[in-house]
Nucleic acid binder design. Structure first.
Lengths: 215, 215
DNA sequence: GTGATAATAAAACGAACGTTCAATTAATTC
DNA sequence: GAATTAATTGAACGTTCGTTTTATTATCAC
């Protein structure tokens, strides 16, 4: 009825986070009880409160670190070039890879926003907006350079993000398609969707789709 | 402390459904209490059980009728023609219109699946699969006829549905874009994504994107 | 070894949950 | 207008929830 042999705060906290992501993704935040979480970690419910003051703090921590990870991942691979096609390709590849790798955490970050307090919701949405802004900038640059054919930059960015993130809904590792195949297909669909051309300067006035990249 | 004047079972049940959709969409199924629902309807919690035996029965009813509505809406507008471009355009237009019109119900049907029993989940997923099958058939026919350029029919169908349904996440009526503008943009993006051509017979062997429709 | 501190257990708190039941009144039927 | 049915109330049930408190033991620094 006290500290157990071999107990270690860092290991326990890491276990709590990991189990919580899986449990919330599967059951939902509201449906997961602290007792259930504790049981799967192998600890009493009261022990959780040593690491997270409230259930909502736990949720917020998971979400914030997920979003920070997404922004950092993109920063790490963002190309230095100004070429919109290269930048868009990098964005798509990073987005798909990151979200497939962290399916459960993405599920949590996308589905449980309504369980956050207003203030914390704002914080998460700010990070999300910053991420989407990166994509919009690429699309805008490409449209201005004439290498993309886009009606509405904002709408196209949302459509692309929904399409790409949606991969976590149906994709299961080890099934029919490999991650590489899925990524290649999404890259191809993305380039067609934005009407990407291989002309590196300005697009020709007519027959704009003539040089569509065959990705 | 009994039947109230002017009370009417049909009206009460309709009110319960309508309020429940809004409440579940906003708070989530688990977070919405039966007492809260009853209060918004203007009735005591016990009265709800006259219409829905359990909370889950209520959720299932809302979801089933949403999916039935979706399938019926598509049946009503499905073109008789064999032309894949026309059929795809009709599918996209119907999908966007239906989902924008029933944003809250769509939210419920997409987000609360995990709160259903196994058997009922299977029922809902069966309807969803039937709907997706319609899109896959259009894409397959178009690919075989050479009017669409598609890597993988199943993957493309999922990507399109995620992209289109995602409209409910960011679209708000009366803001920057009208429903007509949004629909036109999504139609354009869809046609480009599947590499639609205006050639009504077979596509030319090379320069396949030359005749991309300028939607 | 001894003292400080970190990590946990065990038990309990009040509140809220979905649901049931008996009582009661409005509307309808004959 | 009496009998029947439809619609609802108010109170209660047992359970579970997030969280707090207190006590107890392992670990670590010296």
């Amino acid at each position: 009825m006290a500290r157990t042999t071999g107990s270690d705060g860092e290991r326990t906290e890491a276990a709590v986070r990991q189990v919580a992501v899986g449990l919330i993704a599967r059951l939902g935040y509201e449906a997961m009880s602290m007792r259930q979480l504790a049981a799967e970690v192998g600890v009493q419910a009261a022990a959780l409160y040593r690491y997270f003051p409230t259930k909502e703090d736990l949720l917020f921590t998971l979400m914030r670190e997920h979003m920070e990870g997404l922004l950092e991942a993109w920063s790490a691979v963002r190309p230095a070039t100004a070429d919109p096609v290269t930048r868009l390709a990098a964005f798509v590849e990073n987005h798909i890879a990151f979200h497939i790798e962290r399916r459960h955490a993405t599920h949590v970050s996308n589905m449980e926003l309504r369980s956050l307090s207003h203030e914390r919701l704002t914080q998460i949405l700010k990070m999300r907006t910053a991420y989407e802004k990166e994509l919009r900038a690429i699309l805008r640059d490409g449209a201005e350079a004439g290498v993309f054919q886009i009606d509405d930059t904002g709408l196209t960015a949302m459509a692309l993000i929904q399409m790409m993130t949606g991969v976590i809904v149906w994709f299961r590792p080890g099934e029919r398609l490999s991650i590489a195949e899925v990524t290649a297909s999404y890259l191809s669909m993305t380039m067609r969707l934005v009407g990407a051309t291989i002309s590196h300067g300005t697009a020709r006035p007519s027959g704009r789709a003539r040089d569509a990249v065959a990705l």
